[in-house]
């Protein structure tokens, strides 16, 4: 019994003994803190404007509304409803994320009033023809990656941890991501994405952070630059609203059919 107590006390002290931490443990601990600080928002929604630019600089615009419901003990539920371009207006995507298990995803086509299942294999496919892949738009869950602390670095005046995230889920288009996490707000400032050949593919930068409910930080602007095809996408997230009374019922087949 005394031996057991001794072990428990040693285990309890481990997080304090930072010099004894491996880089993996430190990376995980930092992301655990990121998750802890972001938990408890319950539900939220925002309006998005996405500007797609091709290599010639020609732009096209997408608009959608995104709703999120926090689910205790599982990944978030998300509903995206598109408003622009006009021909896809009222199209909606409902996602139940499940961490390491495959997500459940449905597409609603308003012209036919049809609900279709989407395969969860399609993680690396482009979201709305943009440089964001489905896996970039999907909700971040702690268990989706393994982590390794790389270094501390000042990025554009922000004191950051630099962490390597390795996808633990199947069908990712990335071997790894390198993420700069702002020490002050525990939110990403930049993510470099490395493709399956471990070549730098894309860089995502986060800016225009605002704090909501005196607690939750959200970036108002995300810039994704593809270094290989020289296309880019800017995602503006506006009108963030938290705790707007969303529940499971707002993320059901019936809510999908009532989108439009």
């Amino acid at each position: 019994m005394r031996k057991l107590l001794c072990m428990v006390s040693v285990l309890a002290c481990l997080p304090l003994l930072s010099h004894a931490q491996t880089d993996e443990e430190k990376g995980h601990a930092i992301q655990l803190e990121t998750e802890r600080r972001d938990a408890g928002f319950d539900n939220s929604m925002y309006d998005a404007v996405m500007v797609l630019r091709n290599a010639q600089g020609e732009e096209s615009v997408r608009e959608f509304t995104f709703r999120t419901l926090e689910v205790a003990g599982d990944g978030d539920k998300e509903l995206g409803v598109f408003h622009r371009p006009a021909d896809v207006r009222g199209t909606a995507i409902l996602t139940f994320s499940h961490g390491l298990k495959p997500d459940d995803q449905w597409l609603y086509l308003p012209e036919l009033k049809r609900v279709k299942r989407i395969s969860s294999v399609n993680k690396s496919g482009p979201f709305m023809g943009s440089e964001f892949a489905f896996e970039d738009i999907a909700s971040w869950e702690l268990e989706k990656y393994t982590y390794r602390y790389l270094r501390d670095e000042v990025l554009d005046g922000h004191d950051c941890f630099v962490i390597q995230n390795t996808p633990a889920y199947e069908y990712s288009g990335y071997t790894r991501q390198v993420e700069w996490i702002d020490k002050a707000i525990y939110q990403p400032r930049r993510i470099d994405f490395y493709d399956r050949k471990n070549t730098l593919l894309k860089t995502l930068t986060f800016s225009d952070y605002n704090q909501y409910l005196d607690h939750y930080w959200r970036a108002g602007r995300l810039d994704m630059v593809n270094h290989q095809n020289r296309k880019s996408t800017t995602l503006f997230r506006k009108n963030y609203r938290f705790r707007v009374g969303l529940s499971d019922r707002d993320f059901s087949e019936s809510s999908l059919r009532n989108v439009q």
Binding site: D104, Q105, K116, R117, S119
Partner: peptide, 9 residues
């Protein structure tokens, strides 16, 4: 009925 099993629908 529809089922999503990997690449199969």
């Amino acid at each position: 009925a529809q089922a999503s099993l990997g690449n199969w629908l």
